[in-house]
């Protein structure tokens, strides 16, 4: 129980820190949200009306304190730009980004795990070098190029997948998946390469442990050693990296969401920054803090499931 209390306290501290930091940045950052929203042709009366209706005419400190007070009541405020509740906007974008994270993590594991294990098993064979290089290439191609490349092949040439937009899950799994495949692939090709690297090094490190040598000397077959001992023990770093990948993807990729016109968290973040939408940014930063803390927590939980010696403390 104390463990959870400490975790929650830690979460609150993190939120407090990020929100104060965001607030401080807004003190310094030039740009007026009303002007950005209405543009160069805004009429002074319109600007005034917008400022008043969104509470932008109040001093920044007061707005921040209002926001903190609201947060305690579960109210994240209203976005300047969209004039909709921040919580609702984040929820909508989260559905999109979570779908993207879900599919891309599955793809990452489907590609990364077998290739990583295979590479570790066959690291001495000459075929290993080209395979590891191939995975390196996908890690090194800029996200933008990777996305356009995929769009060109699957949308323009083959015309089998849509190149932009998002269809909600309730419109049918097939449609939902169709929109998700390409952006997920753009993410997964890079992240699976990272996963491959970690699995590979982790298995290699395990293989040098004493217990493997003992098992070997006892005549246990290589495949058995790998399946029974090594894989289980190498899972820990794999989970660490997966946890980081999940929180990374849930944080939204500005470039990939931009190229695929995907209305996810990354898109919301870039819009909120460029329009100086203070409540929305604050909401997003809190959301991100939540994701980072939650992912860390889940990773720790999984550690203790895989290796009971690791206790939650």
């Amino acid at each position: 129980m104390r463990y959870y209390a400490r975790r929650i306290l830690g979460f609150i501290v993190t939120i407090f820190l990020v929100s104060v930091f965001t607030f401080a940045i807004f003190q310094i950052l030039p740009g007026d949200p009303a002007t950005v929203i209405l543009g160069v042709d805004a009429d002074p009366a319109q600007l005034e009306a917008l400022r008043a209706s969104m509470g932008m005419d109040k001093p920044m400190v007061e707005r921040y304190l209002d926001w903190v007070a609201g947060l305690f009541q579960g109210d994240m405020g209203t976005s300047y730009k969209y004039q909709q509740p921040v919580a609702q906007l984040i929820q909508e974008s989260f559905k999109v980004t979570a779908s993207l994270a879900f599919v891309s993590i599955i793809l990452t594991v489907l590609i990364g795990l077998p290739v990583g294990i295979w590479l570790a098993k066959n690291s001495r064979k000459p075929v290993a070098t080209p395979v590891s290089m191939l995975s390196q290439i996908s890690l090194s191609i800029p996200a933008f190029c990777m996305s356009i490349f995929l769009i060109y092949i699957f949308c323009v040439k083959l015309q089998i997948l849509p190149s932009f937009g998002y269809t909600p899950l309730n419109k049918g799994v097939g449609k939902w998946l169709k929109n998700l495949i390409l952006p997920s692939m753009a993410i997964a090709l890079g992240s699976s390469a990272a996963l491959i690297r970690y699995i590979y090094t982790s298995i290699n490190a395990q293989m040098k442990e004493d217990y493997i040598k003992t098992a070997k000397s006892k005549g246990v077959s290589m495949t058995n050693i790998l399946n029974k001992h090594v894989l289980r023990n190498s899972l820990i770093p794999v989970i660490t990296i997966l946890g980081m990948l999940v929180s990374d993807i849930l944080g939204g990729s500005i470039i990939i969401e931009n190229v695929f016109s995907f209305p996810g968290i990354g898109k919301l973040l870039s819009v909120s920054i460029s329009s100086r939408d203070f409540p929305l940014i604050q909401g997003l930063v809190v959301y991100m803090a939540g994701i980072v803390v939650l992912c860390n927590f889940l990773v720790d939980m999984l550690y203790s499931v895989i290796d009971p010696r690791i206790r939650l403390k």
């Binding site: 949308c155 323009v156 015309q159 849509p162 932009f164 016109s261």
Partner: peptide, 18 residues
Amino acid sequence: VYIMTDASAIVSAMMSDQ
């Protein structure tokens, strides 16, 4: 009317009949 910001995404959407 779709909100799209990336120029190359717009062209590929045209080319792929979207």
